[in-house]
Nucleic acid binder design. Structure first.
Lengths: 140, 140
DNA sequence: TTGCAGATCAGCAGAGGTTGCAGATACGGT
DNA sequence: ACCGTATCTGCAACCTCTGCTGATCTGCAA
């Protein structure tokens, strides 16, 4: 579902010869079970609350390391900053036009889609972003 | 197919109280029939060749105006700059991992996809980006 | 637990893309 | 042709993210 547990990530980092610092452990905890799609800035804010003085640079560094080892996905948000997705399942996204919130959605039988125009292009993955209005915003 | 003709865009601009300057007309021409997905910088380069002195700021301004009136789509490329899509049909994209080129693809029966997790979200559009290797890069 | 080699940290400066601003200029309805 | 106003240009600011550096800290082995 989400990223692996802090314990698993700790092992994974050590296995790869990366060291596990208190800053990284904090980020592991912040990401674990996180179903939002936080920006680096947001994680930095949350981390700073628990560890004043942590640097934004360190947050980026750790997020990039996690992404490089496939534990996070990077989502390019239309406006501004990238979002990090702790959910590495095969899933897609629904973006609310009003609040900007991103929600995970799952698509079945994606393979059965008929696509024309590939013209020799060989796809090995696909991401779908649905645009619309989320339940909370529709109610408001 | 692509954007509307320069003539149509001229009328559209005037109707909305926007003025049609030589700079804008040039951009209309550069976009018309353009099946690539140029960045602002690329359009600026092409425009500068025909009209030395045109400002990058003006290119952005006009592209944003066109986007606001629905004549262009903005595509957020993963790395760096935005791409402007003169094709406003209901289509999707295939992104080559090697050369970074974007190609248009068309998807049939998209509505028949089974999606779970919407949870009250009401989608009104969707965009799919396929990742893979294009024919040219696969051959090379 | 201690010591060492090397990885990591904080902080700042810089790169790349995009937008804000202000004064001068040009469009276009009348 | 005139005038009001949108637009143009050029520059600087802004935002996000990365490179760099000296000081600090971690992991590992004994």
């Amino acid at each position: 579902m989400g990223v692996r547990t802090p314990t698993e990530l700790t092992t994974e980092f050590r296995t790869r010869g990366l060291k596990v610092t208190p800053q990284r452990q904090l980020l592991f905890r912040l990401l674990h079970g996180n179903m939002t799609h936080p920006t680096a800035e947001r994680l930095f804010a949350e981390a700073s609350a628990q560890m004043p003085g942590i640097s934004l640079r360190t947050v980026y560094q750790t997020l990039n390391d996690l992404t490089a080892m496939g534990e996070l996905q990077i989502l390019q948000s239309a406006a501004g900053s990238a979002r990090f997705d702790p959910n590495i399942d095969d899933h897609h996204h629904a973006l609310c036009d009003r609040c900007g919130e991103l929600h995970d959605v799952y698509v079945d039988h994606f393979d059965s889609l008929m696509v024309s125009g590939f013209d020799g292009f060989r796809p090995d993955r696909a991401s779908i972003v649905f645009g619309g209005v989320c339940a909370a915003c529709a109610a408001a």
